[in-house]
Amino acid sequence: MNDYLKKTDMYGKIWIWTAALVVIMVPVAVCVAYNAWPPITAVLKGLLGVAPMFWTVGVIEVITYTPMLGTGGTYLAFVTGNLTSIKAPAALNAMENLGIKADSEEGEVISTLAIATSSIVTTLVIVIGVCLLTLISPILNSPTLQPAFNNILPALFGGLGVVYISKNWKLAIVPLIFMIVLFLLVPSLADAVGVLVPVGIIVTLAAGRTMYKKGWI
């Protein structure tokens, strides 16, 4: 590991542990300021509804996205969130545009640059939105625009997908068919699409290994 990557790892750890502290301090500050500590049973009951699912997704996301996003990109993306809807596509698109591999140092730089940019833009859009909320709230809630907000992911992954699939169509066939059949048979899985990302990866890896051994790719 060169000096830049070592320092990125060190700075990344400092930032992410500080971020963890900042995140925890938010409810602590509210509890102290209003002298309103919640009943532990209520918190546990609420957590029971989300933790099993989201803690699992959290573990899966860290394992699957870290190799794609690089060191700096990972530390930043996991703090700023919205991984699948903004950060990962932003990094992939930026690397693809420049024809750079994710596991190279140039890939590390471009991925970090894209994730940092999208974090800043997202934060600023929300800041502007919050400042102008009374003005834009009716527009955001207008029934005319709802189909756009309901279809952000298909609109995003259609464009991104066609680039990747056209370049790696042999490797893409099996996981695509697998996922289409899976969602046709069990539509309720749509709510847990995050959990199915590693399933897609395992299927792609299995198909890829077989094709590689046979000399097809």
Partner: peptide, 21 residues
Amino acid sequence: IFMTSLFLGMISAFLGVVFAD
């Protein structure tokens, strides 16, 4: 191939999900 599989695995999940409904 391993690296490309990671990307394609993610993309295939988000492409497949549009068939859910």
